[in-house]
Each structure stands twice: as C-alpha cells, then as structure tokens.
C-alpha cells in the first residue's frame, strides 16, 4: 500500500508518498521533506520541541499522525522569517538571550507565535509563563523566553496598530 500525503508547508505544496500511515507529521517534516529545524525531544508530547503551526494553531508534530492532517497548512521554523528578515519573535529571542543550546528554540518560537495569535496572554508575565509551559528548556532560558515573548507581543501589537 502506498499513500500520498499532501501538505502545504511554509506556503509550498508538497506531495509526500508514504509506505504506510505510521509516520507522524514530525517524522515527515524531518526525515521525508528534510525540514530539520523542527526538533524531536521526546516524541510523546511531553516537551514541545516539535511545535509547529497546523492551520495556524500550535501543535506537537510528534503526536500528529501525518495522514490525519492531510491537506493542512503547516508552518515550521523555516517558514517564519520573511525576505531574510527575522520574524519579531525570532528577533526578540536573540535580543533577550532566550535560548542557550538552541535545541528547544524552534519549538519555543513556534509556540510563542501561536500564543501571541491566541491573544489571551497579552503582556501579563504570569500568563506568558503559563502559556509557554508546554515547551521544556533544559538550559532553563525561561526568564529570557518570557521576556522575549512579551517584547514580541508588544512589537506585533504596535505593528498592527500602525498598519490599521
């Protein structure tokens, strides 16, 4: 049996042949498509390193059977920067030293993008910390992460106000 999975990844339509339905979205992205920015930290929904946006919502790619999101739009860390300019969340992570080893960072950033889009945390540090608690960071860059998310949220809100 061969299956064909169709995804739009970072704006690009992809058809991925699969031998069987077992691969997760994470393993399709990393091992079939070659987008290795998304990381595997636990493969069981316990760390958040594999966070991507599926139709605009943050999800753990490791617990998403790829076939179950057939037809979806996926945004990964590779699709965030536009025309070579860092996304405000990416820039805020650099400025606030919101990472050390960098392994959890793509997941943190995609989670932060999702959190800001949800629009419920605002700039409340406690809500940001809670909202980012599904992303483990063993280097424990948490203070920087919380600051970066608050900064980026503010920057994105300002941009929105200006363009409105």
């Amino acid at each position: 049996m061969t299956l064909t999975l169709t995804l739009t990844v970072n704006g690009e339509r992809r058809e991925v042949p699969l031998d069987d339905a077992r691969p997760t979205l994470l393993d399709v992205l990393r091992e079939r498509i070659g987008l290795t920015g998304t990381k595997k930290g636990c493969d069981r929904g316990q760390c958040g390193a594999c966070t991507v946006l599926v139709d605009g919502r943050r999800m753990n790619a490791c617990l998403t059977l790829a076939m179950s999101v057939d037809g979806a739009e996926i945004t990964t860390i590779e699709g965030l920067a536009e025309n070579g300019a860092l996304h405000p969340v990416q820039a805020a992570f650099v400025e606030n030293d919101a990472f050390q080893c960098g392994f959890c960072t793509p997941g943190q950033i995609m989670s932060a993008v999702g959190l800001i889009a949800e629009g419920e945390a605002g700039d409340d540090p406690e809500r940001i910390r809670e909202g980012m608690s599904g992303n483990l960071c063993r280097c424990a860059a948490y203070p920087g992460i919380a600051k970066a998310v608050a900064d980026a949220q503010k920057r994105l809100a300002d941009n929105e106000r200006k363009s409105a």
Binding site: G37, E78, L86, A91, F93, V94, G102
Partner: peptide
C-alpha cells in the same frame, strides 16, 4: 548577542 543567534532561531543550526 550570540553570534549563532540567527542560526538558532531560524532552525538553520
């Protein structure tokens, strides 16, 4: 800021 910062926040590291 980190010299490898851009690599790490874009998934390119």
């Amino acid at each position: 800021t980190r010299r490898d910062g851009a690599l790490k926040v874009t998934g390119a590291a």
